[in-house]
Design a protein around this nucleic acid. Structure first.
Lengths: 238, 238
DNA sequence: GCAGGACGCGCACGCCGTACGCTAGGATGA
DNA sequence: TCATCCTAGCGTACGGCGTGCGCGTCCTGC
């Protein structure tokens, strides 16, 4: 028994931890995990750090979650809950909005991209299922037979995830560097210019984009590709 | 001096390590890393394990490589070297072949998908640059202005990476489980069917695919989406 | 008043990436 | 020939990781 205890005048005065409702719940753990991931990224999430943010020890988390991997799957699905299911009446408008929302979500939680990279697009979280069912329905109503609707949805989602992954990786790099996007761009520019020197088209592209607004360019490219994908699908309905 | 030395009759008989050419080179390290990654996946690559496969200690690797992260970037680019640059004369045929080769490469090295998830599509490895320049040239020759050619290439690549990511994640899961694809599918089927019960369209899709040939289905979906993307781009040339 | 279960904690194990300083041997120049 | 320096690889160590296990402590239902 350490002498420190003497600093508390009496044991009885020490506030007992209130165990009326439990300190940890699966929900609170997942929510805090998402917050930590957003702030610090995928490789800065450790069970110890997460536990201490919740005022608990690392191993206490295992009462509510089977493993770190399972926790990440729960976090993934928790984020999917943010996605709206906007039925606009027109399949193309609806799919466009879903795609934009998906991209926005990935950019808001850049670790999503890395996690999707090894979890795949098709695991069985309820929110993910809900979203798939919804979009599948929209495509079927638009006139695609179910099997093709499935392929169409997969195509759009693959595009969105693929392109957002690239952007998210860049955002993560920016966050890790501690610099602003502008500053990091300027810092890396010489190396990039050097690297593309032997490639005339890449060099020209870089020159065009110099001092450009990165996020605006990304947004434009996203919209461009999305509309091309939807054009390709729409042609099948004719 | 431990007694074990006595087991060797004479110090002089012990073969001296031949230091004419060094045991480790950056190339040999990267090549072995790719092999290890292919066999055991991203989270089973550790510097210690890699070192011991090369007959060296973990820390020796750091003479040739600044960090594990850098090593992974080098491995990424090494794999990109496999990609062919097939000029067929027709942009659509060429892009189709590049896309197929890209998918095949990702499926051959499933860890690529996870790595791309946090490295992004656009870092500066020479082989990656070479490939970008090539495809950019093909699109420009097809009639796209340079800026749009860039967007078009990004669109196709995003699609390919996105869809291959999903497949690669599945392959990784299969590999980790130690079961065959067939066996794992059968084992997971009940849970999947259960999860999908409340969603009529998903349920119908699952029922249709029961006992289907997974890799054939994936291949078909890939081709379907790829042709839709290319349709959408082709329409811009008219 | 008591049994049983739920919850959180502390400890320990075997991994990890990697910083640092050492040594043995080859290359170099006097 | 010998002193010197450089290079590649090694051993040790540090701090951190995921997580299995057994302990106390409180809440609940009888």
């Amino acid at each position: 028994m350490p002498a420190d205890d003497k600093q508390i005048p009496s044991v009885w005065a020490r506030p007992r931890p209130d165990r009326r409702q439990p300190l940890l719940t699966r929900e609170s753990i997942v929510a805090e995990a998402v917050r930590l991931l957003d702030e610090e990224g995928l490789d800065n999430l450790s069970m110890r750090r997460l536990g201490s943010r919740l005022g608990a020890g690392a191993t206490s988390l295992y009462r509510h979650v089977a493993s770190k991997d399972e926790l990440l799957e729960l976090a993934l699905d928790a984020v999917y809950e943010e996605l709206p299911l906007p039925d606009t009446g027109d399949w193309r408008t609806t799919v466009t909005e879903v795609a934009r929302a998906m991209r926005a979500t990935i950019l808001r939680h850049p670790w999503l991209a890395a996690k999707l990279g090894d979890a795949g697009l098709a695991y069985l979280g309820p929110n993910m299922l809900r979203q798939s069912e919804f979009v599948l329905g929209v495509m079927e109503d638009a006139g695609f037979p179910l099997a093709e609707a499935d392929q169409a949805v997969t195509t759009v989602m693959a595009y969105v995830v693929g392109i957002s992954t690239g952007e998210a990786a860049w955002l993560s790099t920016v966050a890790r560097s501690g610099l602003s996007e502008q500053e990091l761009t300027e810092k890396l520019w010489p190396a990039a210019e050097q690297a593309v020197q032997d490639y005339p088209r890449l060099r020209a592209r870089y020159a065009q984009q110099r001092d450009g607004d990165t996020s605006g360019v990304n947004q434009d490219t996203f919209e461009y590709g999305l509309q091309r994908v939807l054009d390709g699908l729409q042609a099948r309905l004719a």
